[in-house]
Design a binder for these strands. Sequence first.
DNA 1: GCGACTCAATCGTGAAAAGCGATGGTTTCC
DNA 2: GGAAACCATCGCTTTTCACGATTGAGTCGC
Lengths: 304, 304
Amino acid sequence: MGLVTDFELRHLAAMAAIAEEGSFGRAAARLGYTQSTVSQQIAALERAVGGPVFDRPGGPKPVRLTPLGSVVLNHGRELLAKAEALADAVDRFKAGDGRIDIGTFQSVSNVILPSVIRRLRDEHPGCDIRLSEEEPEQPRIGDLDLLFYDGRIDGDVEHLKLLDDPYLLVAGAGTFPAGPVPLEQLDGAPMVAWPLTCDQPWMEQALAGSGARPQVVFRTAVNDTLLSMVRAGLGSAVLPWLAIRGADVSSDDRLRVHGLRPSLPPREVYLHWRAGRTHSPLAGRAIELAVEVAAELAPPPASA
Amino acid sequence: MGLVTDFELRHLAAMAAIAEEGSFGRAAARLGYTQSTVSQQIAALERAVGGPVFDRPGGPKPVRLTPLGSVVLNHGRELLAKAEALADAVDRFKAGDGRIDIGTFQSVSNVILPSVIRRLRDEHPGCDIRLSEEEPEQPRIGDLDLLFYDGRIDGDVEHLKLLDDPYLLVAGAGTFPAGPVPLEQLDGAPMVAWPLTCDQPWMEQALAGSGARPQVVFRTAVNDTLLSMVRAGLGSAVLPWLAIRGADVSSDDRLRVHGLRPSLPPREVYLHWRAGRTHSPLAGRAIELAVEVAAELAPPPASA
DNA sequence: GCGACTCAATCGTGAAAAGCGATGGTTTCC
DNA sequence: GGAAACCATCGCTTTTCACGATTGAGTCGC
């Protein structure tokens, strides 16, 4: 195992150059070294492998590989190729062509991420972006570079608030008069809603705290299905602005979006990453873009 | 291109050890270095790649790869594997498990080489022996490690005489009385012989010089065919002892082997190799074995 | 909170080596 | 025989390597 580090890439590079040029001196010139330096590098290499790698005929005859030299050089070229691949990979990484793993959830996937990803791919066509929308009970950073989540996360995590996402009421056209809807009118009203994960229990508690205990007649995590149910007259829905914006509600005659009075505390959308972790250039840029896109979305209407 | 030699295998080895151990200090212990040394190695590596490869949380927490570090280490492991492969290949080479290219010709292929190769393979089961029996007008060393040839070779070649190979007469039983055959009895006699390559013209000139101008009725390079023709009564053959020994002539009632009077100058079998060329251990051993085998064959009978 | 502990970075030092220029010894070609 | 091309070697300077001791940052247990 100790043998592995006995030769150095520099020596192999010198050897390859000599093999191509046929001369220590020309190889030295090509590499920007002195002839004596190259000579010593080969001497060191020969010490490391335990035998001569070149036959030196003397005079103007070109040097020739020994059998041992052939063995060394054949492997050496592969090594140098790998080394160059490493250097290339580092360069590409620093140019932003790396891999990035992003955790997300429905609303962000629909509204914010598409713009972020489009811009990221425009800037870095070679990058490898991976999304995962698994949202277990306990959202974990795991090996993700970035995680969008509507709330704080425990653990060693840094965070950044992207936007306040106010809760709005979506109802069938004609269910309520235009304008903000007083919360007490929702008491006992039929509603469709998300499952009791994420912020949902907290939101329903907030509703209840204002005296509104609606009757939830259907739960699903799929926003489009919820809105279809509202369209079908099954009930209304209290949803964050982002979730509504994702579907094309404004162009639908059968739906109306109302503010709430008093308004509920907004859902807060955060972007998280592992604390103390050095960002890849790609991740750093993704954060900037996410902030940018979130700002372009704002200001979310306080009421409608 | 300059970037390639900016990092060193030693640094990558340190990095890999750290990644596995989770700590600079333990990695240092494993590698036989001091913690401070490893720390500086990583610092050098980070200078070379232009960014940190580990996040150091501080305290007893294990260090973690940065995204850049993952890129470097993924390639680095391949590099280390290649380096180890190189070291292995060198070791195997020095142990004799290399490749050897040998040029040969019929008589040697039949009589000497089988023993040489058998012993070589016994000693070095992993070795890669390649034979080529092409015998152009001008036998060239080319990229061969060793070349058997019945004569001298021009060029930068060292040589070693393996044995004197006397010419003998093979005739059908009863063609000549037992014992050496006077050369003049061959004058005008029907004969089968090799084509006029190699030493053949020289040998026939030697015959002619002694007053024997036989009538060559058939030429082929294949010894067995020649002997079949002799058996069939087409004529006799003057062949070197090695060529006769290759076939099982002594156990054949229809053939007789005679000496010649006066005897012709023997064919000389040489082993050649490129001058000034460092031998592989395998080639060196092959030379020794060839000498050994040739000596075991001797003394070739001056007459029969 | 407050030490005790673990860990990496840093500093100073001595040894090793990398690289350079100059010189010397060989071989080939004219 | 002399010039030219070539590699090895020597003395020298500068850089790097590796070490031990110390410092500073962070965690855990009480």
